[in-house]
Structures are given as structure tokens and as C-alpha cells.
Amino acid sequence: MTTTDDFRVHAHELIRDLDAATTQMMSLVSAHQLSGPEWERTTRWQHEAYERWMNYLNERSYGDPGNNDQSR
């Protein structure tokens, strides 16, 4: 697999997880279930999925911090 293919596969996995978490959270909002253990679990899942997505994008944007290649 190429680097682009690797990026797409991993990005798709992260987006799918974030979408599932957000959908579950919005389902709870629609049901007026904005507290309790299910709300806490779902909001934590959504937050962590978002953080994983942003970390992956930032890692891909800025590359390896140990790499001082300025040719980009």
C-alpha cells in the first residue's frame, strides 16, 4: 500500500468512529437524555474520537517532530 492509501484507510477508520460517536450523541440529544451514565459514556467516546482524528491530522500535517526537513 502507498502512503496515500495508508492515510485514506486510517482516516476512514477514524472518521467512521467519530461519525458513529457523534450520531449516538445526537440521538441522545433528540431523546432529551443529557445526563446519566449513557450520556457520560457517549460524550467521552465522541470527545476521544475527535481528539484521535485531530491528532492524526496534525501528525500528518506536521510530520515527525524529529524530522527537520524544511523542504516541504
Rank of each mutant, 00 (worst) to 15 (best):
R72N: 03
R8P: 01
D64P: 01
S27D: 13
S61Q: 14
D5C: 00
M1C: 02
H10L: 11
A20V: 02
Y62E: 04
D19H: 11
E48N: 14
D64H: 05
A49P: 07
T2H: 09
H32Q: 15
V29L: 08
A20H: 02
M1D: 13
N67S: 10
R8E: 13
R72P: 00
T3I: 04
D5T: 06
P65R: 09
D64C: 06
E59D: 08
R41N: 09
D69W: 02
E38G: 01
D64N: 15
S35W: 05
M1Y: 10
T43Q: 13
G36C: 05
H32R: 15
R41E: 14
M1L: 09
A49N: 03
Q70R: 12
L18P: 01
D17S: 11
S71K: 05
Q70G: 01
F7M: 01
S27T: 15
A49M: 04
D17I: 06
P65I: 11
H12W: 01
R41Q: 13
E59Y: 12
Q46E: 14
N58D: 14
E38A: 10
A31Y: 03
W45G: 00
H47N: 12
T2Y: 04
S30L: 13
R72L: 02
Q70V: 07
T2P: 06
T4L: 11
A11P: 00
E59N: 07
E51A: 12
M54D: 13
D17M: 06
L18I: 03
T4Q: 11
S30A: 15
N55I: 05
W53P: 00
M25R: 15
P37T: 13
R8K: 10
T23K: 08
G36V: 06
F7G: 01
A11D: 05
E40C: 01
S35Q: 09
Q70D: 14
R44G: 10
P37I: 08
I15A: 08
V9W: 02
W39M: 07
N55K: 09
D69H: 01
H47I: 03
E51F: 00
L34Q: 05
L28D: 02
N68I: 07
T43F: 04
T4Y: 04
M25E: 12
T43E: 11
P65L: 04
P37Q: 15
L28M: 03
N68T: 11
T3A: 08
R8G: 05
T43W: 04
T42W: 02
R72G: 04
S35I: 02
A49V: 08
E51Q: 13
D6Y: 05
R41F: 04
P65K: 11
G36A: 05
S27A: 10
D17L: 12
D6K: 10
Y56K: 02
N68Q: 14
I15T: 08
G63F: 03
L57C: 08
A31L: 09
S30M: 09
D19M: 09
Q24P: 00
L18S: 12
R16S: 15
Y50R: 08
T2F: 05
M54W: 09
R72Q: 06
A20Q: 09
D17Y: 04
Y50Q: 10
W39P: 08
E13P: 01
R44D: 14
F7Y: 15
G63N: 06
G66D: 15
